[in-house]
Amino acid sequence: MNNARANILSKLHASIGDVDYEKLPQESSYAYASRSRQQQLAHFISQLESNHTQVIKTAASDIPTHISQQLKQRDISRLLYGKETHFSSLIEQVKDNDQQGNNSVQSSIDLVAYDFTIDGNKERLFNEMPASVTTSHSAIAATGTIVLWPTPQEPRTLSLVPPVHFVIVDAKQLFARFEQLINTQQWHNKLPTNIVLVSGPSKTADIQQTLAYGAHGPKELIVLLINSDEI
């Protein structure tokens, strides 16, 4: 071990000396105009859409139909999902829904549960999973952001590795701004292993400032927005 820690800290302490923290200047934040729930929702959707995200407004019960339609359009026949979530029983209907499909589709959706650990399954995850669906924890109107809060049921890579990511968002969970979300839910009390704020599909402008989607993460982000209160 080296003395780096002690050296750095003692230099810093010596440079700053005794400070009266009470005397630090008052910080004030900008007072953003408050928006109605309706305006917030409209803004949320338009932000997402301007970030290349497809937003489908739907009743919860129609989610399976939307998913299977979207998968079909893309010629995708496998969907990775997490078991035992708020929406898992609905998601599981994607399969039935598909089998009863009115236009006599032969191929049914192969619904794969993420019930394995990543160790030893990376190849499978990277090469055999063209799409996934996750729930979300909350959403932020100002920036068109979806907050993912991975759990053992819905691991971190579920929303990251498959090229098409469906995410279910409930309009009830919409917050005006990030700071409001953090404070209302008292995030500082306990944070999970990981939280990710997602505001569109993976993208890059690293080659000649030209925007391209699907740099490493999902190429497509499809939001299934439940708005049961019709705000």
């Binding site: 932000q47 691991p155 944070l191 990710v196 704020l197 505001s199």
Partner: peptide
């Protein structure tokens, strides 16, 4: 308005979790 991803990491993989690094280190540089 915000980056596509804002990633907040507070722990290595915890018991029962199916992915994530088993060890996380932070190097603080002067």
């Amino acid at each position: 308005a915000i980056s596509t991803y804002f990633n907040m990491i507070s722990h290595p993989r915890q018991t029962g979790e199916k992915d994530g690094p088993k060890e996380v280190h932070l190097v603080l540089l002067d």
